[in-house]
Design a protein around this nucleic acid. Structure first.
Length: 838
RNA sequence: GCCGGUGUGGUGAAAUUGGUAGACACGAUAGACUCAAAAUCUAUUGGGGGUAACCCUGUAUCGGUUCAAGUCCGAUCACCGGUACCA
């Protein structure tokens, strides 16, 4: 039995790289700008569960790419760190009293050990953790820059409140009306919050996407999230009073069809517009909607509710008096919180109009009776005076001009993107560096007084009133105003987890700098990030927030690039197989028996189970633990297997038998070195050609991150080596070098055994001779009417005429064309001949 | 509903500009080695038909373009991800 000693080898080389600082990176000026590459992984949150097999997937991909780049003469920056502020550690602290720092640092240690055990070529000297004071000092500093630029403001607007976490959540953190973290149904609550004006950067964030080498899907998601729309602001005068009611509409051309108006229950004019006769009904309605959670409000979407205010507005185009209603299908947070309703051509307005018996006026030529159903497609204008017979585009232009001329409207732009609620009522986060002075109001903490360190607390429990646990520490809260020296209180809100990850890629460049968040020179040397790899779950939030901060830093002249991440790749999820009964319920993996014929049954029964793909989960017992895999097969096998499973970008199911196939492959390489002596003889021409074809394919595929096909090509070469008795040095060493990014430990060991003293980490990547990748002979495919009939070996440089000639005289072809008329003869050089007959 | 993506053997998957569908691997079957097993090695392996040479068929479904379609175009279905009263 020849088990290759991966355990010894992997330990040995990890220690070697550590001792020799093999992957320490410096800003060496002799590398040109093109020869510097910044390859970044999304850093992990160090959870108590340890590394998941999904983490090493992206990390292995970037590691292979970095090792490949180094061997090709690049100066590569490849850092790793930890996104170490976060709720789980704090929730654990609430339960057990353990300081989140203690939990977090213990988890970091475990993560670091696990990551190191995979042999990644990180420059560990640059490791950062977002919870360390040295790091968050600069997070606070950046906050102050945003604050001073006027991008942060306090707001009492209703926010999503999680009664379980006792904290405010941003819209993004609420999924289906439930807290993303704990699943509790959220309610709306007014809390004083710090908010970032990310909407001010909406256009810049939108335009910046165009030049990025990112997956189209991610760009689409961000565009959709920003949700820019062009339309018009229209002012409706009221029947009584001087006040105007402003609405936003993308279809101002349908203004003649606006038969009523709706304002959101939270609209500031609600009270003023409510007539005494309607007062009781309106109050009742406001009470009901306020009690509804966001979930209920969207859940009840099908059944429109609302109440008449008693007031009327005047439609500016025709002077008609139209009623103003209050309804919660209009959202206060989008546009102006008020709409003009055009029931004939909007299905929401139509439903509402039908329910409350409001008039419906057709203004776009419809193919249906708008009294029976809404017409939401295009149509030429009717019943619209000066817009009649115009199409949508022209009518909008004409109406806009009319509105501007009359002074009752203008062109307007709106976004779905909302401002970013940036405070949390939590302990385990960066304190926001502001103080509230009785006299001076909100005052930023002077930069030389940073960091504002987290104080020790007795209890991590949120105060329940909405304030963070920090509010309970009088000695910390009470301070003096930096401006007037009088009494002041510290801001007790902390920052959300996104804060640290908004700029960590910059801190890696200069992690020990105590004077600046990053030095200009280092930023200039490395930025932007050439390749950023991580999970698709961060497609919108993290990537949008980080881009926002970066753009602000750019506008402040603090960084030189407009966009932080030039190229983005999302790795697919690693899923697992699950076993499903006929009734669609799932059976835990340890209660499943796989029979010889491939079918699966529930243990001890004859119940046939269907193999389906599912996320790894504890309850299905199909979670794979990287530690166990490394112990059984070694880190190199794990790395290669994760890359061999399929393309990096797609999700794919883990299979332990596939894993052992890769182990077998590495073992075969090891045995080549063990069982055969290296020969200095020139390899045969055939083998040499196989080698050069392999170098070509592996070089190309590694460069484009198509690792699965690169690996299969190296398998082909290894299979080839098993067919001969010798081990030609030229082929063997090139194989070792090509394998090096994939199996760094095994390759280093074999390289040393082949007689080399130095690590191969920066050994030159094998080169190929194009001439040797082309065969002298080719297989000529002969087709008749597009159907393959036979294949014949011919010289590669055969002429078109000869190709056709040999085909027409081929004995296998003759029967197919005999007695038929040849209509066409097609010859594709190097490929095939197709004879078309009738 | 809207936006984005994916559908190829028993399984994971390959397949330049349209040009031999299924590389490579798993699993399975048979054989060699072994007292036996494991490991290893060799062979076969999309489906159907035929003793065989070989033939037919096949990339979610239907249709189209083309000498030639997994690849291009149109429609449909299924699944996955995002989003959802955004006026």
């Amino acid at each position: 039995m020849s088990n290759y000693p991966f355990n010894d080898i992997e330990k040995k080389w990890q220690a070697y790289w550590d001792e020799n600082q093999t992957f320490a990176t410096t800003e060496d000026a002799s590398f040109t700008k093109e020869q510097r590459k910044y390859v970044l992984d999304m850093f992990p949150y160090p959870s108590g569960a340890g590394l998941h097999v999904g983490h090493p997937e992206g990390y292995t991909a970037t590691d292979i790419y970095c090792r490949f780049l180094r061997m090709n003469g690049y100066n590569v920056l490849h850092p790793m760190g930890f996104d170490s502020f976060g709720l789980p550690a704090e929730n654990y602290a609430i339960k057990t009293g353990t300081h989140p720092r203690e939990t977090t640092e213990k988890n970091i240690e475990n993560f670091r050990r696990q990551i190191k055990s995979l042999g990644f070529s990180y420059d560990w000297n640059r490791e950062i953790s977002t919870h360390s004071v040295e790091y968050y000092r600069w997070t606070q500093w950046i906050f102050l820059q945003l604050y001073k630029k006027g991008l942060a403001y306090e707001s009492e607007k209703p926010i999503n409140w999680c009664p379980s976490c006792k904290t405010g959540l941003s819209n993004e953190e609420v999924k289906d009306g439930r807290c993303e973290r704990c699943g509790t149904q959220t309610v709306r609550k007014n809390i004083r919050q710090w908010v970032f004006k990310i909407t001010e950067y909406a256009d810049k964030l939108l335009e910046g996407l165009d030049d990025l080498d990112w997956p189209e899907s991610v760009k689409a998601m961000q565009r959709n999230w920003i949700g820019r729309s062009e339309g018009a602001a229209v002012f409706f005068s009221l029947e009584e009073g001087e006040e105007k009611l402003e609405v936003y509409t993308t279809r101002c051309d349908t203004l003649f069809g606006a038969t009523y108006m709706v304002i959101a229950p939270e609209h500031p004019l609600v009270e003023q517009l409510t007539k005494p006769a309607q007062k009781a009904a309106v109050e009742e309605y406001l009470k009901k909607t306020a009690e509804k959670s966001d979930l209920e409000r969207t859940d009840l979407a099908k059944d429109k509710t609302g109440v008449f205010s008693g007031s009327y507005a005047i439609n500016p185009v025709n002077g008609k008096k139209i009623p103003i209603w209050i309804a919660d299908y209009v959202l206060i947070s989008y546009g102006t919180g008020a709409i003009m309703a055009v029931p004939a051509h909007d299905s929401r307005d139509w439903e509402f109009a039908k329910k409350f018996d409001l008039p419906i006026t057709e203004v776009l030529k419809s193919e249906v009776d708008v009294q029976e159903q809404p017409w939401t497609e295009d149509g030429t204008h009717v019943n619209s005076e000066f817009l009649n017979d115009l199409n949508k585009e022209d009518a909008i232009a004409k109406m806009l001009a009319w509105l501007e001329e009359k002074g009752c409207g203008h062109k307007a732009v709106n976004y779905k993107l909302r401002d970013w609620i940036f405070s949390r009522q939590r302990y385990w986060g960066e304190p926001i560096p502001l103080v509230h002075c009785d006299k001076c109001g909100v005052v930023p903490v002077p930069e030389d007084q940073l960091p504002i360190a987290l104080p020790e607390v007795d209890s991590y429990e949120p105060s329940g009133t909405g304030e963070s646990p920090l509010a309970k520490i009088d000695s910390w809260v009470n301070t003096t105003c930096p401006v007037c020296g009088g009494h002041a209180k510290r801001e007790t809100n902390t920052m959300p987890q996104w804060a640290g990850s908004c700029w960590y890629y910059l801190r890696y460049l200069d992690p020990l700098n105590t004077e600046e968040f990053v030095s200009k020179e280092k930023e200039d040397y490395w930025m932007p990030v050439d390749l950023y790899v991580g999970g698709a779950e961060h497609a919108v939030l993290h990537l949008l927030y980080a881009r926002f901060w970066h753009k602000v830093l750019f506008d402040l002249g603090l960084v030189n690039t407009k966009e932080p991440f030039k190229r983005l790749v999302n790795q697919g999820m690693i899923t697992s197989f699950a076993y499903q009964r006929d009734d669609k319920t799932l059976v835990p993996a340890d209660e499943v028996e796989e029979l010889a014929d491939g079918t699966c049954v529930e243990k001890g029964t004859d119940n046939k189970l269907e193999k389906v793909i599912a996320k790894m989960s504890k309850s299905l017992k199909n979670v794979i633990n990287p530690d166990e895999i490394i112990e059984e097969f070694g880190a190199d096998s794990m790395r290669v297997y994760e890359m061999f499973m399929g393309p990096l970008q797609v999700s794919k199911p883990w299979s332990t038998s596939g894993m052992s196939g890769i182990y077998r492959f590495l073992d075969r390489i090891w045995r080549l070195g063990e069982e055969r002596t290296i020969s200095e003889e020139k390899p045969s021409k055939d083998l040499l050609k196989k080698l050069h074809k392999t170098i070509k394919k592996v070089t190309g595929d590694t460069d484009t991150l198509n690792f699965n096909t690169a690996i299969s090509q190296m398998m082909v070469l290894v299979n080839e080596l098993y067919k001969i008795d010798t081990l030609p040095r030229e082929v063997w060493e090139d194989l070792i070098l090509m394998m090096a990014p994939y199996t760094p430990h095994l390759s280093e060991e074999l390289w040393q055994r082949a007689g080399h003293k130095e690590s191969l980490a920066r050994a030159p990547w094998p080169t190929y001779d194009e001439a040797l990748t082309i065969d002298d002979e080719m297989e000529l495919v002969m087709q008749v009417n597009g159907k393959l009939r036979t294949k014949v070996k011919v010289a590669r440089d055969i002429s078109r005429e000869d190709m056709i000639e040999t085909t027409l005289s081929n004995e296998k072809i003759l029967p197919w064309i005999e007695g038929k008329t040849i209509i066409k003869k097609i010859a594709v050089p190097g490929k095939l001949v197709n004879i078309v007959v009738k």
